[in-house]
């Protein structure tokens, strides 16, 4: 069962996305801000990270950069999520080290496809 770390400050988004992912067989852990996200990710054991970009404490871009800077999380796939959907956000996320990027509101089938690609098949 693939393990996903969901880093998201908004309670409703967290609730929603985690439940939908769990229903599809993922084991989901949750972090509420960037700092907690980095800590949990570095503790290890995740197959993929879903990272909201606008987060308190440390934002998603910075958190991603920090995760890419250390060996234990350098290769864990990260998908960046943002509600802004502004031009340039995608580039910014990829630059920070995200493997892929999606906008909120999440279209679950599209996100699932991205997750599955990054996990190397179902």
């Amino acid at each position: 069962m693939p393990k996903i770390l969901l880093v998201e400050d908004n309670e409703m988004n967290r609730d929603m996305l985690s439940r939908r992912l769990q229903k599809r067989g993922f084991e989901v852990s949750m972090a509420m801000d960037g700092r907690q996200g980095v800590e949990m990710a570095r503790a290890g054991g995740f197959d993929l990270i879903l990272m909201d970009m606008s987060l308190p404490e440390i934002d998603g871009w910075e958190a991603t950069r920090q995760l890419r800077a250390v060996p234990e999380t350098r290769t864990v796939p990260i998908i960046g999520l943002t509600a802004h959907a502004m031009a340039g956000d995608r580039e910014k996320a990829l630059e920070a080290g995200c493997n892929d990027y999606d906008t909120k509101p999440v279209e679950l089938p599209r996100l699932l496809a991205k997750i599955e690609t990054l996990l190397g098949g179902p």
Binding site: M12, N13, M16, L17, R20, K104, P105, V106, L108
Partner: peptide, 8 residues
């Protein structure tokens, strides 16, 4: 986003 997510 919340409306859509929960409704879906």
């Amino acid at each position: 986003n919340h409306v859509i997510g929960y409704a879906e």
